[in-house]
Every structure is written in structure tokens, then in C-alpha cells.
């Protein structure tokens, strides 16, 4: 690497590591993984400094690389879990055999203030925990969906998940998330 590039990259490490880490953490809820992904981002940036267009912000460019690294992580996770999670039907526990809501799964009204909950670190902690408790396959698909909807779907298609299955996975993930939030955030507060 040329010396100029090296100086510049060192400066970027000093300037942007914290922000990139925080961004990675919000998209993965995993401290160690976030640190690894930020490190990989800078290593990849060092390899492709010549591809950086001077008219764009370095932070935007680096965030783009990081986003790809996160997507790649969840792609691997889906590939590893693809056979173990798809055939089972966790969804059954939410509905009776005729497809109506099961007694214990029927959504209750959420009484407490729902507007600005994401301003509360305590709520974000529970939200994080609920996402992390999803089975690996659902976790990866829903993370990808919110990282980049189009890319998420494309990755799933490339891995052989049909569109119908993709929606089913997101549906199940949503059902579990909703249930988890109700149990651990809303009900205890009523």
C-alpha cells in the first residue's frame, strides 16, 4: 500500500471505528462479531483504496463495505441452517389446526405508550434479546430484510429459498418477535 493511502487509512480508523462499530452493533446485536466485521471492513478498504471515489464521503464508502460484510455474515448463517430449520413448523404453536389464533397466542392490546419506545435503552435491550432468540435462520432472514430488503430477498433466492418460503420465514419471525415483546415488555407493565 502506498504511504499516502496508509496515512489516510490510519486517520479513518481513528475517525470512524466507533461509528462503524455502533452501526454494526445495531444490525447484529453482537459485540464480538461487530468488532470483527469493522476490522474486516478496514482490511477490505485497504485492498481497494483505488476504488474509492474522491467525491464521496469516506464514511459512506466504509459503511457500504460494512453493510456487505454484514450481509455476507447472514448469508453464511442461512446457508448453514437451511436444512435444519425449514421443514419444521414452529408456526403451529400460534394457531389451532383450523388456522385460528391459539388461545395463548392471540394478540393482546398493548397498553403502554408505543410511540417513542426506541428512545428507551431498556426497551431496545428487550427488542434485541427477542431478535437474538429467534432461530438462526429466521434471525438471519429478518436481519437481512431490514438491512436491505431487496438484497435480503435476492440472497435468499440465491440460496434456494423460494419466495413463498421467504415470506413464511419472515411471517414466523414476526409472530415470534411480537409474542416475545408482548411477554417481556408489554404484559409486565400492565
Amino acid at each position: 500500500m502506498e504511504n499516502n493511502n496508509k496515512t489516510e487509512l490510519t486517520e479513518w480508523v481513528r475517525l470512524y471505528t466507533k461509528d462503524l462499530y455502533a452501526w454494526a452493533y445495531r444490525n447484529t446485536s453482537d459485540k464480538e462479531l461487530s468488532e470483527d466485521l469493522v476490522q474486516e471492513t478496514f482490511l477490505a478498504a485497504a485492498e481497494s483504496m483505488s476504488g474509492f471515489k474522491r467525491d464521496s464521503q469516506p464514511k459512506t464508502w466504509l459503511t457500504g463495505i460494512l453493510k456487505n460484510k454484514i450481509a455476507e455474515h447472514y448469508r453464511k448463517s442461512i446457508r448453514q441452517n437451511i436444512t435444519t430449520t425449514l421443514p419444521s413448523d414452529e408456526i403451529a404453536s400460534f394457531f389451532s389446526s383450523d388456522g385460528r389464533w391459539g388461545k395463548s397466542a392471540m394478540p393482546h392490546a398493548w397498553q403502554s405508550e408505543t410511540g417513542n419506545l426506541t428512545d428507551l435503552p431498556a426497551f431496545n435491550k428487550i427488542f434485541d434479546d427477542c431478535i437474538e432468540h429467534l432461530p438462526a435462520m429466521m434471525n438471519a432472514c429478518i436481519r437481512l430484510k431490514f438491512l436491505d430488503e431487496k438484497k435480503g430477498k435476492k440472497i435468499c433466492q440465491e440460496l434456494g429459498i423460494t419466495t413463498t418460503n421467504y415470506w413464511q420465514i419472515i411471517h414466523r419471525a414476526k409472530l415470534q418477535l411480537r409474542d416475545c415483546l408482548e411477554k417481556y415488555w408489554f404484559v409486565p407493565r400492565q
Binding site: K18, A22, Y25, R26, E35, V38, T118, P121, K125
Partner: peptide, 18 residues
């Protein structure tokens, strides 16, 4: 979530990361 505050010890990377 991009703007959502998380607990301070998780918000920050390890000191030696840089």
C-alpha cells in the same frame, strides 16, 4: 434502530479495537 440508543457498554467497541 440506526438511531436507537443501546446501553453505553455495548455502544462502544473495546478500547483496543482501533
Amino acid at each position: 434502530r440506526e438511531k436507537a440508543p443501546v446501553s453505553p457498554e455495548l455502544e462502544q467497541p473495546s478500547e483496543e479495537l482501533e
